[in-house]
């Protein structure tokens, strides 16, 4: 059976979950192609959940994608490398690790917006092909993953 392309977001905590929900609420996002899953309860649990439930899923469904939404807690290089080592090569092109440099709450305080509003702004940027919000100090380190995401999921998440 041919499944349409799909993206699963695995948020680390409730703050990440609200950003992801805000992203999906943006009117140009095809909300049937993306699902925000229950919070994992910490970045380590995001990785465990991914390995336990999504590695086999992505191998079985070649058009599915996983977006691991975590806080880097000021240790972007180390934590990003750790995730990269754990993601199998054969599905690596469909797995993305993104998040705030410190915490989602840090981003909320800096932007003085609700987490949901921030998520919608990030989706608006994606739709408009700009990086106004993605360029924030708390998010700029995601450039590489954001570019990969743009190439991989924008065609089906922002169909218009």
């Amino acid at each position: 059976m041919a499944y349409p392309p799909h993206a699963y977001v695995i948020p680390e905590d409730d703050a990440c979950r609200q950003i992801a929900d805000g992203f999906v609420l943006q009117e140009n996002v095809d909300s049937r192609r993306i699902q925000v899953m229950p919070v994992a309860g910490g970045w380590g649990h995001v990785l465990e959940t991914f390995k336990r439930e999504y590695v086999s899923l992505l191998r079985n469904r070649e058009r599915d994608h996983a977006i691991l939404l975590i806080d880097f807690d000021g240790a972007f290089d180390r934590r990003f490398s750790h995730f990269q080592q754990e993601i199998p090569d054969d599905i690596g092109s469909r797995v993305f690790v993104v998040g705030a440099r410190d915490e989602a709450e840090t981003l909320k305080r800096a932007l003085k917006q609700s987490l949901e509003r921030i998520g919608r702004s990030l989706a608006e940027d994606c739709n408009d092909g700009i990086t106004t919000h993605w360029d924030h100090d708390q998010l700029q380190h995601n450039d590489g993953e954001r570019n990969r995401l743009r190439d991989a999921v924008k065609p089906f998440l922002f169909p218009s």
Binding site: R17, G22, V24, E27, S31, S114, L115, E116
Partner: peptide, 28 residues
């Protein structure tokens, strides 16, 4: 999400729930 989007465009949507998945689709 469809109902919330509808209200964001024009209107208002209020709901009650006990369902975890619905609760997860709203913000603090």
């Amino acid at each position: 999400i469809a109902l919330r989007r509808m209200a964001h465009h024009k209107g208002q949507f209020l709901a009650t729930t006990h369902h975890p998945e619905t609760i997860r689709k709203f913000s603090d």
